[in-house]
Design a protein around this nucleic acid. Structure first.
Lengths: 248, 248
DNA sequence: TCTGGCTGGATACAACGTACACAGCGACGT
DNA sequence: ACGTCGCTGTGTACGTTGTATCCAGCCAGA
């Protein structure tokens, strides 16, 4: 590329003519301009949120991590709301969608389990006040509808079924994450430590005598820490109910 | 300031004796001390959140509304986290719990519907990163367990069933609220206005051709705006599934 | 009558989101 | 070839937020 080299040489010459030698060599080399893109912004923001929680994602911190001035991000994103939208869509983009050929029930199940895994990997997602209208969220919905296609359901019912499963998954995993976050904040690493940490709060509440059934649960239950089992039981109920009520 | 240091150690009466009559009667009467309590704090904070959204609940605004200095609230609450906990528990306290005598399915259904109504009345609740360990949240769980008692389920299963319904309700209503919030933020008052507002975003996405099933839904569905129907269908599925799988 | 402990007030500060004006650079019409 | 325009990133600044810290008044008990 002779033309490009020529142009560069010329602009350099022009600068040389205007700025004194000593000023030039004193002046720190202009840092290479970091190029920004929505994708890179999203990736870096997600990395911060994954590593240190969503509260660590500030516009300034993000800019630092991007190697850029605090306000630079605003060229690609109108504000923090859009940033969150970008982050959510970015994560949904990593979700592997199931093959509808395996049958609606198995496909729905893997969809649910993968969504759960995704949310557990990025716990800050469950706070998403983001509507499901980003491209990759829509792709998930599309996949859910495709899975339910050809079973004789009308579109209203297909969407209702998909939303039912999605609602269960989100609600269930959100509860799961809330507990995990509490444990992490307090430094408890398993169910026993957690119960020990909550003991004083709990005995105080139990001693009011207002929660006999819960007290029995606390004493008798043996699967309190089996989160997979709990999620699975509920999911089975939901899928059974769909199969029964829709006749599929 | 020697005068100030001198006055600091003296009782009210001593001060009265030293301060001139004119200074005393000119000086504005000390405002009557507002009495604070956790309950009043929660009630006022909830009122603000209901009226203007959770973001309007700042410590300063709350203090103003309570007729108190900004830092006064901190005597009753360790920080904003505990304030939110207080608010959430306050709202759960207004939830009417069902009579278990009507049978588990009806009781579960009214529990679900009343929880939905409560969340829709206080949309900021769905962002609760609060664990279900406050007295009134525990009372709801207790009620759910009581409803399922005596049906031959072990405690693990009872809790799993209750949590399944709760997860569905929270997930479903959260989605509902996210849409309602978008509509309110944009000033759209019904489904048609909303679709009109989203049209450009949507046609852009649909024209990618990546969402054929969703496009069909958008064209064919007739119950897109029937939120009660959507919630009810899903709830029926969940309850059916529980009945079938648990044999109750 | 004194004193200690609550409760509310006042001041202060760091961190946040973001508005605004500016500067460099590539592309394009002339 | 050259001026100009539009992007994109920079620098500065402002108002708001949560909350740490210290003070002052009041009530209970000695």
């Amino acid at each position: 590329m002779p033309a490009e080299e020529e142009r560069r040489g010329k602009s350099a010459k022009q600068e040389k003519a205007q700025v004194s030698l000593w000023e030039r060599i004193e002046r720190p080399a202009p840092p290479p301009r970091a190029t920004l893109s929505a994708h890179r912004i999203a990736a870096v923001a997600v990395a911060i949120a994954d590593a240190e929680g969503i509260d660590a994602v500030t516009m300034r911190r993000l800019a630092t991590e991007l190697g850029v001035a605090p306000m630079a991000t605003y060229r690609h994103v109108s504000g923090k709301g859009e940033l969150l939208e970008l982050m959510v869509d970015f994560v949904y983009g990593e979700l592997a969608l199931p093959d509808p050929a395996v049958g609606w029930r198995d496909a729905m199940r893997t969809l649910a389990e993968r969504t759960r895994a995704m949310l557990l990997d990025h716990p800050w997602m469950s706070r998403g006040d983001v509507l499901a209208l980003t491209p990759n969220q829509l792709a998930l919905t599309e996949s859910g509808l495709a899975v339910l296609d050809g079973l004789g359901l009308d579109t209203d019912t297909m969407m209702a079924v998909f939303r039912t499963v999605a609602a269960y998954v989100h609600g269930s995993v959100t509860a799961e994450i809330n507990l995990l976050r509490l444990m992490q904040d307090q430094g408890w690493s398993n169910g026993d430590e957690t119960r020990a940490g909550l003991a004083s709060r709990m005995t105080w509440l139990m001693d009011t005598g207002r929660y006999p059934a819960y007290r029995r649960y606390a004493g008798e239950a043996t699967r309190k820490d089996d989160r997979e089992w709990q999620f699975g039981v509920g999911l089975d109920c939901v899928l059974d109910g769909i199969a029964a009520r829709m006749g599929i």
